[in-house]
């Protein structure tokens, strides 16, 4: 099977950035031990916009936490550039859904320099300042560099978080439903801006969402997970679809196909 695009060319063996194989993740509540994902496999390559999609309870956020190193798998391995992931580190920067991910006691610029200096990306304050300004410009927040986060709107806060993550130039950027708490118009704008940033720098991103539309727009490849516990249902391509295709037949068909995959589980569950 070969890709459908006209200028495609078969590539020789390359190593994935992130290699997740047979990963089972469990966590404990006060009373119970919950299995969140069961033997999940996937590979993320350089410059992928890899989306983890599934209904709530499919363990997609848990999986992202596992990749970030906040949780250890009970079986299977997760390798970043061939090294087993064992703890959190600045080579996998996470952007969260919650607005409180910015440090409220630091200004927009300080939030980014904080990351650069502590994450070991920069050793001098001047260098960190320069890089911070570069990324603040990328997300168009020059006017707010010295503002404290509580003065910013939700969309602006997420932009700062994205700028902070990208400034680290991590091997892979992890995004946990970063636009879920935004209003519809802001969300659409942020999606466009994210894709524009990707066009500029071609960073690798692992993106979690529960919106099928967002998955198709943002993703180049979509991993669909089934719920209770999370297992791989399918891996689909969406690299050729973006905002400009919304409403087109191909876009609608893919959306419908994904919808059916997720919906099929729901019906089974309801019957059970």
């Amino acid at each position: 099977m070969v890709g459908t695009a006209a200028n495609s060319a078969t590539v020789p063996d390359i190593d994935p950035i992130l290699d997740v194989s047979g990963v089972t993740l469990q966590y404990k509540t006060k009373e119970h031990l919950i299995t969140a994902t069961y033997r999940v496999d996937f590979k993320v390559f350089q410059s992928d916009r890899f989306v983890l999609l599934g209904p709530s309870g499919c363990g997609k956020s848990t999986l992202l936490k596992g990749v970030a190193g906040f949780m250890k798998p009970v079986e299977g391995t997760m390798k970043l550039k061939g090294n087993v992931i064992s703890r959190p580190g600045p080579d996998r920067v996470m952007v969260f859904q919650e607005f409180d991910q910015l440090l409220p006691w630091k200004t927009v610029k300080q939030n980014i320099t904080f990351a650069l200096l502590n994450g070991g990306k920069c050793s001098s304050r001047g260098e960190a300042d320069d890089i911070a300004m570069e990324y603040i410009r990328k997300v168009k927040l020059e006017r707010f560099e010295n503002t404290y986060p509580h003065m910013l709107s939700g969309g602006m806060k997420q932009r700062v978080a994205i700028a902070r993550g990208m400034a680290m130039e991590p091997d892979i950027l992890l995004m946990d439903e970063p636009f879920a708490a935004l209003d519809a118009l802001t969300r659409r704008q942020m999606q466009e801006e994210l894709l524009q940033l990707w066009e500029d720098t071609k960073f690798t991103v692992l993106f979690v969402t529960h919106s099928i539309e967002e998955a198709v727009i943002i993703g180049s490849r979509i991993l669909i997970l089934s719920p209770h516990p999370g297992q791989v249902k399918a891996e689909l391509n969406a690299h050729h679809l973006g905002h400009e295709n919304v409403g087109e037949t191909e876009f609608m068909a893919l959306q419908e196909r994904i919808h059916k995959m997720i919906f099929a589980d729901r019906v089974l569950e309801d019957e059970a």
Partner: peptide
């Protein structure tokens, strides 16, 4: 919040 803790660990 868990988020702030995770941010701190994320940046080493």
């Amino acid at each position: 919040s868990e988020t702030l803790r995770a941010v701190g660990q994320n940046y080493n």
